[in-house]
Design a protein around this nucleic acid. Structure first.
Lengths: 341, 341
DNA sequence: TTGTAAGCGTTATCAT
DNA sequence: ATGATAACGCTTACAA
């Protein structure tokens, strides 16, 4: 199809090496020669064969975004669209290619791991939404695959970029407290995920700071899906909360629906805060007060960190990169001051 | 890192060729030898180097999903999440890898095209959401890149998988007609996309079939974004429609918000139908009546078609694959019978 | 500054 | 049934 180095070389009356040097911008080429070679390249429509190049350089310029099967159901969550967009754009900007790896079926998870990670196609990976009991990150560490985790991970060797989940959750609950709420419930994210733990932690910190006792009847663990929000509401209602902090917008939307069905109005009867600020958050009625995290940015930064790790000469003493991006409270219509009733 | 064929060969006391034959399941290997080789493979933890393999086979087992820059803003649309999920799963099932190519910045579109498509990394591509004036598909045809389009494309050589947009739109409008509506407006999708044209066409067919005159004041072109739905409403209201058919759910949600702000109630004052059945459609208030398309399935089928094209010996007379999947009307709460007032 | 030649890890064509 | 050996298209010492 496309001509090879050899043919370009012939066209320019030089050797393969010289053409290679020109393509790779090596300094030691006479200006006049360089020009002649470029002309031949343009004339012939030459495109370097990246596969051949990879074989010798051991670099593919491909990184993967890996999402383990445990969250595949979450893939309808706009979170991933935004994350992918951030990662893709940054890859583009750095002339890298992005491979998408969803570990779908649990059954052949191992087979997939082998195929994807030992294929030789990957320079590195960005890993999103793992749970603490998932063997993915331990496996990656064991196999010395360069990777960056989205969301903190309790191991010194793991590079990660995270958002301030604790602070975000605390802001949300403080907002409710300021509105006079005292019986504030939370629907936590999965406690097998650090984000789930951290948001619960922020909830607790906010209450403790105001000396509001923590009532276990007001805490239910969800799984970041919409149905789990609905289910949680029914567990929570007997404890008579006046406000609910849901650890994700998707769950908050489940809450909204369930409350509507139960004949309760938001925010008149119950106030509600979410987390994420996905596009739907502003579309629902009432528009959702929530904690915004810069999802696209997270993806972008994660890729940047990964590339910097890939660039590093591995001999240096390895510093672990840990970035925590800020969150922000977005006040909309789903909270009101507590009624005096 | 990983051992090479050579080392496995030594370990099994055979030649490279024999190991290669075993790996690739070639018939002519003595059972006893085969076993010995497999043992050596397992012992050494050998993983074939796919890059080296690709260099000689000219196959990478990588296909790309390409989304041209024109729709990058749409990437927050759940449509793409679902599409990606369908494509990814089918890739996994067939041991293919998926590369994601978003042509973001218009500026270096050409550079990206070259880099992505002539890299040598791709066996083929699935192309989503192109507009008719986008040079992408013509370029792919010109460069003889095997590809499948999501959405029909008016060229005999283009394989595509589409949904029945015309039929879906017709169903939506017929539903409104059955409810007694006569002044039915539509917010069309971009007419530079075949889906936009087809849905508008279905709208018109439904009216014509019932001899309802087509009023240009009741037709506005949108661009599948939420704001465009809001803008369209304001252009439409002077024509006093009793119902609106929006060519996408995202636009319908924009309509919902705009109507709310204008003090109009759905469905009491105005009925509304969308298209797509994205998850949000059932989350908004009132839940949106819409036309469901099997998005995930589309992605899955597109990959299957692509792989079958890749498998084909190119010498055969090329039959173009064209699949059209059915759509389905999902009735929820956003339509009511026309008031007699 | 440029060219020669070795080598990256496979597959595939021959012999044997 | 198995083993040499030549590609595949590139990068990169090393020579000149």
């Amino acid at each position: 199809m496309s001509p090879t180095l050899e043919e370009v070389a012939r066209l320019a009356s030089v050797s393969r090496s010289t053409v290679s040097r020109v393509i790779n911008d090596h300094p030691n080429v006479r200006a006049e020669t360089r020009e002649r070679v470029w002309k031949a390249i343009r004339q012939s429509g030459y495109q370097p064969n990246v596969v051949a190049r990879s074989l010798v350089t051991n670099r593919t310029q491909i990184i993967s975004v890996i999402i383990p099967e445990s969250v595949t159901t979450l893939f309808t969550d706009p979170f991933f669209s935004l994350l992918l967009r951030g990662t893709t754009e940054t890859c583009n900007a750095h002339q890298y290619h992005l491979m998408l790896s969803l570990f779908t079926a649990k059954a052949d998870r191992h087979e997939m791991y082998q195929r994807v990670l030992h294929s030789g196609y990957l320079d590195g990976a960005v890993v999103a939404s793992t749970t603490l009991d998932d063997p993915l990150i331990p496996d990656l560490l064991h196999d010395h695959v360069p990777f960056v985790s989205i969301g903190r991970y309790p191991d010194d060797r793991v590079h990660y970029v995270d958002v301030d989940n604790v602070g975000g959750a605390r802001m949300a609950v403080e907002h409710l407290i300021r509105l006079g709420h005292r019986r504030i419930a939370t629907i936590a994210g999965p406690l097998s995920m650090t984000s789930g733990q951290d948001r619960l932690n922020g909830y607790q910190q906010a209450l403790e700071a105001r000396r509001i006792p923590i009532d276990d009847a007001l805490i239910v663990e969800g799984d970041y899906t919409e149905p789990s929000g609905g289910v949680a509401v029914h567990q929570l209602l007997p404890a008579e909360p006046t406000a609910i902090f849901a650890a994700s917008d998707i769950m908050a939307i489940g809450v909204l629906k369930a409350l509507r069905e139960a004949g309760l109005r938001v925010p008149q009867d119950i106030s509600l805060v979410g987390f994420d600020d996905i596009p739907t958050a502003s579309a629902v009625e009432p528009a959702l007060t929530t904690v915004r995290q810069p999802i696209e940015r997270i993806g972008s930064v994660a890729v940047e960190v990964l590339l910097s790790v890939l660039e590093d000469t591995p001999s240096e003493n390895p510093t672990t990169h840990r970035l925590v991006l800020p969150t922000e409270l977005v006040i909309r219509a789903s909270c009101s001051a507590v009624s005096n009733g």
